[in-house]
Design a protein around this nucleic acid. Structure first.
Length: 184
DNA sequence: AACTGGATCGTCT
DNA sequence: GACGATCCAGTTG
């Protein structure tokens, strides 16, 4: 049973660390969330910073829905929308459901890097614009509660040029499935 | 381990 | 017309 939409109707910084350890599936394929980043409308690094546009519309829509965008003309990134203008970028999974399917979609990479980055994760789960705006508690999505409490570490976000010092990256401590190791 | 450049295109200036 | 919440391959140290 998926986590309810109300789970996301809270401050983004409260929700983000709680996602670590939850299992994300798209059409029955996915794994444990081990890395996320938070963005909100007061944040110069956020797509919502300059207000609503056609592209970021989902970010200003109801909580508990997906915001998917294309980046660098090549890759897709998946976010979970919280309150209007805020969202959480899903950056890495520990893949464990549907490994065959993910390997097929990603081509000969080792399991450790199947979902070790936002673009890789989207490719492995076949996420693209067709999921933009869809609710997270209905097919094709499933978001299952964590089975055990994870130790969560915080640090600066990756790949941005503004808001660089804002420590809104959340990762599972000692996970070997991260996009990059967490700074000491 | 750290840094470089190329791919590729929708979005906003 | 420039740039980006990325990835990969290549080079350098």
């Amino acid at each position: 049973m998926s986590v309810s939409r109300d789970f996301f109707d809270r401050p983004v910084l409260e929700v983000a660390p709680e996602l670590i350890g939850m299992v994300l599936l798209v059409d029955g394929v996915g794994g444990r969330i081990v890395e996320v980043e938070a963005y909100d409308e007061a944040d110069p690094a956020s797509h919502s910073f300059r207000g609503p546009t056609p592209r970021n519309a989902a970010m200003f829509g109801p909580p508990g829905h997906a915001y998917v965008y294309k980046i660098y003309g090549i890759h897709y990134c998946l976010n979970f929308v919280c309150r209007p203008g805020s969202a959480i970028l899903i950056r890495a999974l520990e893949p464990n459901v549907g490994l065959d399917m993910m390997h097929e979609r990603r081509g000969g990479v080792v399991e450790k890097q199947l979902c070790s980055g936002p673009g890789k994760l989207a490719a492995a789960l076949a996420v693209d614009l067709k999921q933009n705006g869809l609710p997270l508690d209905e097919a094709p999505f499933a978001l299952l509660p964590a089975e055990a409490v994870s130790e969560v570490v915080t640090g600066p976000r990756i790949g941005i040029t503004k808001g660089v010092e804002t420590p809104w990256r959340f990762v599972e401590r000692n996970s070997r499935y991260l996009s990059k190791p967490m700074k000491p």
